[in-house]
Simulated scan of single mutants.
Amino acid sequence: MDDPDAPSDLQILAPAMPPPLPGASPAIVARWFDAAAETTPPTSDGSLAGDHAAADAFRRLATATNTRSAYRSAVRAWCAWCQVHGRPALPANAADVAAFLAGERARGLAAPTLVLRRAALRYLHRAAGLATPTDDPRVAETVAGITRAAAAAGEMPRKVAAATDVLLRQILAPIPDDLRGLRDRALLLVGFAGALRRSEIAAIAVERLEPTERGLVLTLPQSKGSQAEAVRIPLPYGTTELCPVRAITRWRAAAAIEAGPLFRRLWAPGPARPGGLPPLPRVGTAPLSAQSVGDIVQARAAAAGFDPAAFGGHSLKRGALTTGMSQGAHPAQLKRLGRHKRFDTLGEYLEFGDIFDGHPLKGTL
């Protein structure tokens, strides 16, 4: 689905909607936050009000789009809870926030989801210029108790399987050389070679692929690990069927893509004419969504005989880093490839295989 129409210049220049008055109905708070969480950088008209509006917009843009989307869902849930129980949504009472989180846990929500919801309520109050109730000891201890209870119950964060080079070859094997197959093969190999997240794969534009003697250099305007500056990612020429450059070349030639989004939606062809060849799918103009990228990874894994529920968009990134680790790459190189700020974050992406093979005391005991 295409993005909604861009706002007009008048909308862009309009001052940000003021926060609702204390005690406003939860429905009004939810509508205000939906509008406040989504914004584009305005072009100020030079007035003081315009400059203030621009500053407000840039502050909201400091939080990633996906995070703001998750916050909107969390605030809607909070406002619905307040509506049911007749409690104020803004400003919130710390005891109510703790009760809300406890109730959501009792309804089966995972501990990480509740940590995110607490962060969303902190963001809501800061956006409204109010004191944050989420730092109150009652809230902090409730979240700590939920996290401890989840760990005691054996709940572990779900991690998708790492699509290592060995698994990736198996996933690629049954993919045909039709138009859809060429697109999906290129998508999988680019995601693997660049250790890319699904949103980064979806956002690739042809104009950001720079040919060099050793491969392509992909420029990402932003990445999760580098919000403030662009990053350059090498996609090397390879000598095997895992070469991302040849896969891109074949896909672009078949789809006649000269500019714009690299990975696009394919529309089903119309009915075949009597006696004629089956028509080819039509190549769209809009990029795939991040969700579509994850769906493609799962579908291709299923076609190769794997459980699709074990795979997802992050499988390519985890697979690349795990493969690099198994080949003896230095942790600093892996950190750079994965664009992680810290080594502990990198560790979350690595799959260490047999825990006995890697035991530090192997051969000593």
Rank of each mutant, 00 (worst) to 15 (best):
50 G>V: 04
9 D>N: 07
51 D>P: 04
53 A>Y: 04
35 A>L: 10
11 Q>E: 12
43 T>G: 04
32 W>A: 04
39 T>E: 09
55 A>D: 09
18 P>E: 15
14 A>R: 11
37 A>M: 01
9 D>P: 07
22 P>M: 12
36 A>V: 07
54 A>L: 15
55 A>I: 14
40 T>M: 06
17 M>L: 09
57 A>V: 07
64 A>G: 13
13 L>D: 13
7 P>N: 03
19 P>V: 13
32 W>C: 00
65 T>N: 15
4 P>K: 11
26 P>S: 00
6 A>W: 05
50 G>W: 01
35 A>W: 11
53 A>L: 10
7 P>D: 02
11 Q>R: 07
61 L>S: 10
66 N>G: 03
39 T>I: 11
16 A>Q: 09
27 A>I: 03
8 S>T: 15
56 D>S: 13
52 H>W: 05
29 V>I: 00
14 A>N: 07
23 G>D: 01
45 D>K: 05
61 L>W: 09
30 A>K: 00
7 P>M: 03
63 T>N: 06
52 H>K: 06
60 R>K: 06
39 T>S: 12
22 P>A: 15
25 S>G: 03
37 A>P: 02
30 A>W: 00
15 P>E: 13
34 D>Y: 08
46 G>S: 09
65 T>M: 11
55 A>T: 13
48 L>H: 12
27 A>Y: 02
50 G>I: 03
19 P>A: 15
18 P>R: 15
45 D>Y: 07
23 G>E: 01
36 A>D: 02
22 P>I: 13
34 D>H: 03
50 G>R: 00
25 S>L: 06
24 A>I: 09
5 D>I: 08
50 G>P: 01
51 D>Q: 11
62 A>R: 10
11 Q>G: 02
20 P>A: 10
31 R>K: 02
8 S>F: 02
35 A>H: 05
60 R>S: 03
39 T>R: 02
34 D>Q: 10
40 T>W: 06
37 A>Y: 00
18 P>S: 15
16 A>R: 11
65 T>C: 15
39 T>N: 12
55 A>K: 11
38 E>A: 02
63 T>L: 12
55 A>R: 11
43 T>I: 08
5 D>H: 03
20 P>W: 06
65 T>L: 11
48 L>D: 14
44 S>N: 10
36 A>P: 00
15 P>C: 14
11 Q>F: 05
47 S>A: 15
31 R>G: 01
9 D>S: 14
34 D>P: 02
44 S>W: 06
36 A>F: 04
48 L>P: 05
28 I>C: 02
45 D>R: 08
8 S>H: 06
42 P>Y: 08
54 A>W: 12
58 F>T: 11
37 A>H: 01
66 N>W: 08
41 P>Y: 11
48 L>T: 14
16 A>W: 07
58 F>K: 15
10 L>G: 06
24 A>L: 11
46 G>D: 08
8 S>Q: 08
64 A>S: 14
52 H>D: 08
20 P>R: 02
67 T>L: 08
37 A>W: 00
32 W>S: 00
47 S>E: 09
48 L>A: 14
5 D>C: 05
